[in-house]
């Protein structure tokens, strides 16, 4: 079980959170072409290694968090607020 150190609530179990997906993609602007939205919805890198993901503290503060997680080891390196840009280790 992953443990996530919520910046608002402290260290909590994974069970309190809802995974939302890739936090490295950003929603295109209003006038962006269809292809940009296609990539936003469907195109994912699926990296082996460090990844930034959205986790929603659904049974806690209801905040979306940016979690820097290693997809092989499940190690959580950083948990940032939604508006922050956490540092991602190179490997």
């Amino acid at each position: 079980m992953i443990r996530i150190d919520c910046p608002w609530c402290g260290m909590r179990d994974e069970a309190e959170f809802t995974y939302r997906g890739d936090a490295t993609v950003t929603r295109p602007g209003a006038n962006a072409p269809e292809e940009a939205f296609h990539d936003f919805v469907y195109a994912r890198k699926n990296p082996r290694g460090w990844h930034v993901e959205w986790w929603y503290h659904s049974s806690g503060c209801r905040q979306y968090l940016k979690v820097v997680r290693h997809t092989m080891t499940h190690e959580v390196r950083t948990v940032a607020r939604a508006t922050e840009t956490p540092e991602v280790p190179s490997e």
Partner: peptide, 13 residues
Amino acid sequence: MQHMEFYLQTVWP
């Protein structure tokens, strides 16, 4: 609710 929170917090904060 979760959908609204997502867009409010992450897309249009």
